[in-house]
Design a protein around this nucleic acid. Structure first.
Length: 419
RNA sequence: CGGGGCGUAGUAUACCGGUAGUACAUCUGCUUUGGGAGCAGACAGACCGAGUUCGAUUCUCGGCGCCCCGACCA
């Protein structure tokens, strides 16, 4: 993508109505646009990052047997009445609306009900189970107070996966498998080191659940962390009893702020009982399906990456999620040979399937470097009179700032290896 | 939902009971070209409504919007 054609532009200052670091940087760099409080649109660069995060999630969930669908965002109250969750005191963040001809509708806050109801059409026998079904779909939540930029918004896409198993044991097996997939996902998107599986409340569904919490000062949750054991406990459930159950001593734990980037929890037969999702076992006896639910918000993951990996100059994307593999910056000073060489490098990368952002604008070097730092693509390739004379391209790491002069063929080799 | 704060140009801000100034951005011209250049010029602004007043962007009230703290977050 030639930067001269990109419709977004960077800004020197953040809008005064944003305090959250993630939203400030993402808006300044042109990744997202704020529509209103708690509602953000994704612009070209932001969408590319979002899609990269979604791709990582999709790959890992497919690898454990997930089948992808898209359920509707408009929801029929009937299923929700059957589980007694249509009431505003059961789910207090409902956005509800009406049909012109009369009758209510809900805007999806989550999808347990419609999916469970849908599956009653397809799941009849123990031979139909287990099944793992997921989607990336918009959730609407009428939060009393939106905050923390894209970490907590009123409209957001969630990857929600639901498991349907024949027994508690079969459910547990998948639950642990999914926990493993989550671990790999957070490692791949660059949050691995700071993300811990966290013992948490199961809400109304079960006694306990597991959250994946990324240690971060901007977090809204408080957890007690044992780094050595790689485990954390959410403050909500922290008690002597839980400590004993987990075999952890108080002294091992430190109190930390954290962002909940994912969660997995058992649903038991709460929904299958209410909506009649049953199967005939091998003796012909009807049994309720045992369910589980597993969520990750790609937008929240994106915000969290910005929170913990950015520096004073801007964003520092991990390779797997960066909007482009490389950022070509030409410093021509009006020298046509430099422009030609930068064009050639851009075309050459494209021929090798390497997508780069190419700053071909006619602006001064300082502005280009500042923008490049802000946008945060991991590898910067500088083409200038200097590099032309030295017979290579300057490769700059966004993370370390380290520079090396490298030949074009070596660059292509390295970038392709990283893909 | 309780408490607090704020709405001035695209962005960030200043002043003022007598119709608003600056910086950045944008546009034009010249100069400049390895870390957000310089000079000259141009475009562009008081959230909405009511009240007080000779006169309101300024004061008062209401609405709408935004932010922060807390509560909430299946």
């Amino acid at each position: 993508m030639r930067q001269s054609e990109l419709f977004t532009k960077t800004r020197k200052s953040a809008p005064k109505d944003e305090v959250a670091k993630n939203a400030q940087l993402l808006i300044r760099a042109g990744y997202i646009h704020k529509e209103m409080s708690g509602v953000y649109s994704y612009l070209p660069l932001g969408l590319r990052v979002f899609n990269n995060i979604a791709r990582v999630i999709r790959e890992e969930i497919n690898a454990i047997g997930g089948q992808e669908i898209i359920l509707s965002a408009l929801q029929n109250p009937a299923a929700w009445k059957a589980t007694d969750r249509w009431r505003d005191d059961a789910i207090d963040v409902w956005f509800k609306t009406e049909l012109k001809g009369g009758g209510e509708l809900g805007l999806a806050t989550t999808h347990e009900e419609p999916l469970t109801a849908l599956l009653t059409q397809y799941i009849h026998s123990y031979k139909d189970l287990p099944r793992y079904i997921y989607q990336f779909q918009t959730k609407f939540r009428n939060e009393l107070r939106a905050k923390s930029g894209i970490i907590r918004s009123r409209e957001f896409v969630m990857k929600d996966l639901y498991s349907f198993s024949r027994s508690e044991e079969e459910f547990r097996e998948f639950y642990e498998k999914c926990a493993g997939a989550y671990k790999r996902i957070f490692e791949r998107v660059g949050l691995g080191e700071k993300t811990y599986r966290t013992f948490a409340s199961g809400g109304t569904f079960s006694k306990f659940s597991d959250e994946f919490q990324t240690i971060c000062e901007a977090g809204e949750d408080t957890v007690y962390l044992s780094k050595e054991k790689g485990i954390a406990i959410n403050k909500e459930v922290y008690s002597d009893g839980v400590l004993a159950e987990l075999g952890i001593k108080k002294e091992e734990l430190t109190e930390e702020k954290a962002i909940e980037v994912g969660n997995i929890f058992p649903l038991g037969t709460r929904f299958s009982d209410a909506l009649g999702l049953t199967f005939k076992d091998d003796k012909g006896i009807s049994q309720p399906v045992v369910m589980g639910s597993y969520g990750i918000g790609p937008g929240r993951v994106m915000g969290t990456i910005v929170e913990i990996l950015s520096d004073v100059k801007g964003i520092v994307w991990p390779k797997e999620v960066a909007p482009y593999k490389a950022h070509i910056v030409s410093i021509s000073g009006g020298n046509n040979d430099v422009v030609a060489e930068a064009n050639r490098l851009y075309d050459s990368l494209a021929e090798h399937g390497i997508e780069a952002l190419y700053d071909d604008r006619d602006v001064r070097a300082g502005e280009k470097f500042a923008d490049s730092d802000l946008i945060g693509i991991p590898t910067r390739l500088v083409v200038s009179e200097k590099t032309l004379a030295e017979g290579g391209v300057e490769v700059v790491s966004r993370k370390t700032g380290g520079t090396t002069l490298v030949s074009e063929s070596a660059i292509i080799e390295t970038l392709m290896g990283k893909q």
